[in-house]
Amino acid sequence: MFSEILAERVRELKETPEGVDSMCREMDEIYNEGIEIGIERGLEKGKMEMKQETVLSMFNLGMPVEQIAAVVKESVGMVQKWISESKAVI
């Protein structure tokens, strides 16, 4: 290593019971934060997909785009985008 101080700290973290315990706690924290972020992203994605399905159902019932946008609380542009994307798939 380039630094004796850094080399000693790495040795402590890897080779002493206290260092290993400290690293395990840190890794658990990082892991748990990652899980929380993943859950939040999944929920947001699910909400967006539900909005898209609702938009398409309302559009297929003949509702005006402006009214659909107001109901799902999205911009008219976003609603139009979802509708045109669904037409491209069909």
Rank of each mutant, 00 (worst) to 15 (best):
S3K: 05
S3Y: 02
I5G: 00
E8A: 11
R9H: 00
V10G: 00
E12P: 00
L13R: 01
T16P: 00
P17Q: 02
P17R: 00
P17A: 01
V20F: 03
S22M: 13
C24H: 10
E26F: 05
E26P: 02
M27S: 04
M27Y: 06
M27L: 12
N32K: 08
G38M: 13
E40C: 03
L43W: 05
L43F: 09
E44N: 10
K45H: 07
K45C: 02
G46I: 12
K47N: 05
M48V: 12
M48P: 00
E49V: 15
M50Y: 10
K51Q: 11
Q52V: 15
Q52D: 03
V55E: 04
V55Y: 03
V55R: 01
L56P: 03
S57G: 09
S57P: 01
M58Q: 08
L61I: 13
L61G: 07
L61R: 15
G62E: 02
Q67D: 13
Q67A: 13
I68A: 08
A69Q: 08
A69M: 04
A70K: 13
V72R: 06
V72G: 11
K73P: 03
E74I: 05
S75W: 07
V76R: 11
G77T: 09
G77S: 10
M78P: 01
V79W: 00
Q80A: 11
W82E: 04
W82D: 03
I83D: 02
I83E: 03
I83P: 04
S84H: 10
S86P: 14
S86N: 15
A88L: 05
V89M: 11
I90R: 05
I90W: 03
